[in-house]
Nucleic acid binder design. Sequence first.
RNA 1: GGCCCGUUGGUCAAGCGGCUAAGAUUUCGCCCUUUCACGGCGAAGACAAGGGUUCGAUUCCCUUACGGGUCACCA
Length: 433
Amino acid sequence: MTNPNSNQVRTRFAPSPTGFMHLGNLRTALYAWLFARANEGTFILRIEDTDQSRYVEGAVDVILDTLMQCGLDWDEGPIVQSERKDEYRKYALELVEKGLAYHDEGAIRQRVPKEGATTFSDSIYGDITVQNSEIEEQVLLKSDGMPTYNFANVIDDHLMGITHIIRGNEYLSSTPKYNLLYEAFGWEIPTYIHVPQIMRDATHKLSKRDGDAYFSDYVSKGYLTPAIINYIALLGWSPKGELAEQEIFTLDELVAAFGTEGISKSPAIFDLEKLRAINAEHIRRLPLDEFTKFARPYIGEFDIDYAILCAALQPRTEVLTDIGEQVGFIETVGMYSPNVYMNKKMKTAPDTALEALKAVLAVLEQGDFVKERIFEELKAVAESNERKVGWYLYPLQVALSGKTTVPGGGLDICIMFGKDESVRRVKAAMELL
RNA sequence: GGCCCGUUGGUCAAGCGGCUAAGAUUUCGCCCUUUCACGGCGAAGACAAGGGUUCGAUUCCCUUACGGGUCACCA
């Protein structure tokens, strides 16, 4: 594989192809990638498929596609463990020869000293000591010839020259076993970086059965990939120093800010509200044409001014799926109660609407159909009657949409529709009054 | 249950022996405003409990409580 002698940082992401991409796994991949990139190191992808019974067709593609979509490019791999059976067998037999492992019912087990203790050091949790009597003599090579995760992991991490092992802290308690293995082979022990878990609530992990644990779930729910990455980066890690206040990050900014000092020891609860807020901020920061590209599929095809609509939609969209409901009035006004004309602040009511719409219609029909002109003239009308423009514009909004709230002002959607459609809708609304 | 790990507002979190204990989000006010948003300003809300150590503990140590992880020929 590669020379294990280089001093360069080498990290890896080593998922099992068992289904969709879990957010916890994705975050681990993100940290490993960030650490490699932040240190100008190498990021390696390895597929841990030593349990054939758990293999899911297409799962490897999901892993590759997700990483690519997220911008987590790998420099080496994917290395597939099931293709390397002979390698593991060789090392297992070497241990047997040294007397550090033994055959047991077709499998090969690690021999663990009965006495003494094993101490390992973790960058996040510090030194952890475990009595050897607590460590079980685990299987290294299964009777089907495949290595166990624990064994293949050590062999591959060494052979691939991994310098920093970044993984979930569910592996914390099996780490002494790895050290014993490294020592048995006389290999250098890598730096361990165990990261805390992502929880659904105080007592449950974010798990598959909740239907909200997978990356793809959130993409289909209208979240932007960079926002998801941004959010999960912050689950268990926070920037230090001058960047401590920053919360919105692009992937490049994360690379610049990332460091293991910022990784937390305690688990983090996944909070949908916060994800929404971060997603909303990412949406607001999009250039209008970018936002328009994302928004178009949620709007549909109409003869309207999309630039006006999308500009109005952008600050009002927290997740892309918010859009549909906001634009429903474009296709058709639908039924609505006259009470919709009631607005305390604008001092409008069903019985003031007709007079307002008459005045509006006159202004709409007479001159150029541009926002500034229409607004100025309506304002003049309003002032001469000692009223606010809203007294006219709010009824216009209702006439055009049948809604109490729309994206943008009444005049904005009027321009968005254009003269013909607007006049048609205003007249239709007046018929109902 | 044994072993290991953790515990700052509802949530994410800063803090690393001396602070009126940051910030974000959420909620609620006010301002801006052609609705609603966005934006601006403000408010509410936290060191799990008890012992030590110390002139002084959110910070260090111990105990308890609570939570999590792990004890597979799964990863």
